[in-house]
């Protein structure tokens, strides 16, 4: 599936003289696209069949048609775009703040033995707190406003980045670091010349995990305390028995999550090619 995120080879260069990079496998692009679409299309067909034949009552599983109509209805009221926009905005802001903090603290803990001893146990304990446990506290502190949701998402996005960056920095090839030192690089210059480039592929995969966590925490936040957004749509529809909207919200979350993840996957692929 993914490229082998191998540890940087500082010592044993390959003998390949061709300047082009070997592709992962010989699979063509359209095969990948079509292959990936097979299962969703099959599900759609089965879904259509079981609902129109009455095999499953539409009160349990609405037909694709009904879900589509629910979407159109919400769109006409101007709610669909608004919910998608507000949820995406929360995820992006929370993800960016969490990732930046995770990068900074991960770098400090990964590079400094002292910071590791001082901070790692506490951060590990905070990480162990289940996401939902924060919700009542955040609502008490920040009421139902944007802050509570964004802080929760920030917490969710922070830890994957923090842990991968700290671990990757601890395992940067010591020989490369020593070579950097031997050529007069120290501190910040050494970090930006040797250590940071060496961990960029790990950072990229940490960011992908963080983004997935951000969507997870978004729904957790919106389910419990929100007046807008996809999580709110889920809980509101649950209360009103609007199963078509529940299906719609789940499908939208799947599509949005996959789309944003694909963007980061492109970045990760580029990072692995360039820096690994």
């Amino acid at each position: 599936m993914t490229d082998s995120t191998g540890i940087a080879i500082g010592n044993a260069p390959a003998v390949a003289v061709t300047p082009s990079r070997a592709p992962r496998t010989g699979t063509r692009r359209w095969v990948v696209a079509v292959g990936g679409a097979v299962l969703p299309l099959a599900i759609l067909v089965v879904w259509q069949v079981v609902t129109t034949t009455g095999l499953v009552p539409t009160s349990q599983v609405p037909s694709p048609q009904m879900v589509w109509e629910a979407a159109v209805d919400l769109a006409q009221r101007g709610l669909l775009g608004q919910y998608i926009a507000i949820s995406t905005q929360r995820v992006i802001i929370g993800f960016l703040i969490g990732a930046a903090l995770g990068l900074a603290l991960g770098a400090v803990v990964g590079l400094s033995r002292f910071a590791d001893i001082l901070l790692a146990p506490t951060l590990g304990a905070i990480r162990a707190v289940p996401s939902l446990a924060w919700v009542p506290l955040l609502i008490l502190w920040f009421k139902i406003g944007e802050e509570s949701k964004i802080i929760l998402i920030t917490i969710g996005a922070f830890f994957p980045v923090y842990t991968t960056v700290a671990a990757a920095l601890r395992h940067v090839d010591r020989q490369l670091v020593e070579a950097g030192r031997a050529f007069g690089y120290r501190g910040v210059r050494l970090f930006f010349t040797v250590q940071l480039p060496a961990v960029i592929p790990s950072v990229a995969s940490g960011l992908r995990l963080a983004l997935a966590q951000a969507w997870l925490f978004l729904v957790a936040a919106e389910l419990i305390a929100a007046s807008m957004g996809l999580g709110f749509l889920l809980s509101d529809s649950g209360n009103n028995g609007r199963i078509d909207r529940i299906f719609l919200a789940i499908i939208l979350l799947a599509v949005l999550g996959k789309l944003t993840d694909s963007i980061l996957a492109l970045f990760e692929r580029w990072a692995v090619r360039k820096w690994a």
């Binding site: 940087a8 080879i9 500082g10 010592n11 044993a12 260069p13 020989q175 490369l176 020593e178 070579a179 950097g180 030192r181 031997a182 050529f183 007069g184 690089y185 010349t193 040797v194 480039p197 360039k274 820096w275 690994a276």
Partner: peptide, 30 residues
């Protein structure tokens, strides 16, 4: 890490993400 010396290690210890040219440039004094 005496600046009057330069070391050629047993392993090349090149930065894999840099071109040869930029790896050589790493040795330049500040």
């Amino acid at each position: 890490f005496d600046p009057r010396c330069a070391i050629g290690f047993q392993e090349p210890r090149l930065l894999p993400w840099r071109t040869l040219e930029h790896n050589v440039a790493l040795g330049l004094p500040r």
